[in-house]
């Protein structure tokens, strides 16, 4: 197990390094004088000089990078040009919102996809299977920016069951928080349900043809036990891999719903920053989100070694 994880960890470090270089280079992609770009042409020379120093633009590139990286390691990703909030602070306040959204949406996706796949895969191509397969196929065509407005129109504006906007921290009022979380979470969960269901279903169908399932039956185990204890785990590898890859589109989804529901998450902050051309904030958020994504991949690789003991052998 050690060797495999060490290899993955080295990979993690390499990828993180490259991400940091790319994100760092972003500011240097700006055509012309970056201070003019950032501050606009009409700002004072004094402000421009401050920014120049803040960005360290008078130093060689590699030196600028080490300074920037060193600061980043110490939790200093710069400050917002607009309201002088530190990027770290923006991330710290936004992260709980975004993470909660992703967690709830994934819980919903697993709670629907897994039991449905377990039921349906036992009798493939029957009516229940056909209905679920066809309808989850439709879910694939429902990205958050399509579903979310419809959900708001129907359940918030039309029926008034849920608030259309707003966010209350879970620690303040858990019930209000969950009530507000339902629509945005559901809006980003559609694609996940479809992907998880379809992968798990097709893997379960082929697992159920295996000898060890017949063996489990010949022991006299109940169908429920066979499905959960024998068939599910060896069928869950693609599901797990997909869950890792899916995080990417979930991040995109949180951006959409945070904007639509006015939830102060990372995506909301990022979109605001982009609109205001608050470059350091964009840079800092991109770095942290990209690295978080890579770390999640690593964690999933780690879960693999638990779910499938054979992985370690490779």
């Amino acid at each position: 197990m050690g060797k495999y994880l060490i290899r993955r960890f080295i990979q993690l470090l390499v990828v993180s390094f490259i991400i940091s270089v790319l994100v760092f280079m972003l500011v240097h992609l700006l055509p012309g004088d970056p201070t003019t770009q950032i501050l606009g042409a009409n700002d004072t020379a004094a402000n421009r000089a401050i920014l120049l120093k803040q960005l360290g633009l008078n130093l060689p590139l590699w030196h600028q990078y080490t300074i920037w990286l060193n600061a980043a390691f110490h939790g200093n990703l710069g400050t917002s040009y607009l309201n002088h909030e530190s990027v770290t602070h923006i991330l710290a306040t936004g992260a709980p919102v975004s993470i909660e959204l992703i967690l709830i949406s994934q819980l919903i996706a697993f709670a629907i996809a897994i039991p449905l796949a377990l039921v349906v895969s036992r009798k493939p191509n029957r009516w229940l299977d056909n209905i679920s397969t066809t309808s989850t196929f439709g879910l694939l065509a429902l990205p958050p920016f399509v579903v979310a407005p419809i959900l708001v129109a129907v359940f918030a504006v039309g029926l008034g069951w849920f608030p259309a906007t707003g966010y209350t921290p879970f620690t303040q009022a858990p019930l209000t928080n969950l009530h507000e979380m339902i629509l945005p979470s559901v809006a980003i969960t559609a694609g996940s349900i479809a992907v998880y269901f379809r992968l798990l279903r097709s893997d379960l169908i082929s697992t159920l043809q295996q000898d060890f399932i017949t063996m489990a039956r010949s022991k006299g185990l109940s169908t429920t036990r066979i499905m959960w204890r024998h068939a599910f785990r060896p069928s869950s590898f693609s599901l797990l891999a997909a869950a890792g890859i899916n995080i990417g589109s979930l991040i995109a989804g949180t951006f959409v719903v945070e904007l639509l529901f006015a939830m102060p998450g990372i995506g909301y902050a990022l979109v605001q920053a982009v609109e205001q051309r608050d470059y350091l904030v964009v840079q800092g958020i991109s770095l942290v989100v990209a690295i978080a994504f890579v770390v999640i991949q690593f964690i999933i690789d780690f879960i693999f070694t638990i779910v499938d003991p054979r992985v370690v052998r490779e």
């Binding site: 295996q210 000898d211 060890f212 063996m215 204890r229 024998h230 060896p234 779910v307 054979r310």
Partner: peptide, 8 residues
């Protein structure tokens, strides 16, 4: 090899 559950 196939009749024993590989992950149990």
């Amino acid at each position: 090899m196939t009749a024993l559950n590989p992950v149990k």
